[in-house]
């Protein structure tokens, strides 16, 4: 399943932990919910291989005992009080909708149950 672009054949084989980077680009596109043709997938897969080869440099830096940073500044506890603020008018909320009906946003039927 899926279109696998094995990077061994592309740009000198980027690796993680000695293993060639293997991108199931069709799987990634499904996760990202973007409908791409086979040619587009192939092309982007190759480009990502090149970028990842460079990005894989991050693995060369010894990071044992280094904490990851997800936030540049050391802040904590930014809260808001439990106070109601007037919501948008419904017409305003719906005005940009591609399709609306009876005060709802309208979409085609869904395939998946949650």
């Amino acid at each position: 399943m899926g279109r696998r672009v094995c990077m061994e054949s592309v740009r000198g084989a980027p690796t993680i932990g000695g293993m060639a980077i293997d991108i199931d680009i069709a799987y990634v596109a499904r996760l990202a919910r973007i409908d791409l043709s086979d040619e587009e997938l192939e092309r982007i897969g190759r480009q990502l291989g090149g970028i990842l080869e460079h990005a894989a440099l991050v693995q060369q830096l010894p990071t044992e005992g280094v904490e990851p940073t997800s936030h540049p500044l050391p802040m904590v506890n930014a809260f808001r009080p439990d106070r109601v603020v007037p919501p948008l008018e419904r017409d305003t909320a719906l005005t940009q909708a591609p399709q609306a009906e009876d005060g709802y946003f309208r979409v085609p039927p869904t395939l998946e149950a949650e």
Partner: peptide, 13 residues
């Protein structure tokens, strides 16, 4: 871990 996690550690460095 290999990509995003490692990048966050590099960010720390």
């Amino acid at each position: 871990d290999a990509f995003y996690g490692q990048a966050q550690k590099v960010r720390t460095l």
